[in-house]
């Protein structure tokens, strides 16, 4: 079993999982932003790599979306 943190919420998976698969599980419970980008362990992962990026136990996924700014 591996444990992944997505936006500070802990998820447990019984087998190896890709970033794409983890996001699908996450967005079953959370609102999916119209656009978003993300980092794994504070490193940017491009959208083109979501399907191939294998997550490891202890990985921290942070999802970011646009907001107003100065």
């Amino acid at each position: 079993m591996i444990t992944i943190s997505i936006n500070e919420q802990t998820y447990k998976f019984y087998e190896q999982i890709t970033l794409s698969e983890a996001l699908s599980r996450y967005f079953e419970h959370e609102s999916k932003p119209t656009v978003f980008a993300l980092a794994v362990n504070q490193n940017f992962v491009p959208q083109t790599q979501y399907a191939n990026h294998q997550l490891s136990s202890g990985d921290i996924v942070d999802i970011f979306s646009p907001i107003q700014g100065g």
């Binding site: 970011f64 646009p66 107003q68």
Partner: peptide, 22 residues
């Protein structure tokens, strides 16, 4: 403009009563 991490509480699905800022 800027980017912000999606809050697990404020980003909850509509109807949960928790959505707002996101």
């Amino acid at each position: 403009l800027s980017l912000k991490r999606q809050s697990p509480i404020l980003g909850s699905k509509q109807g949960s009563g928790l959505e707002n800022e996101q």
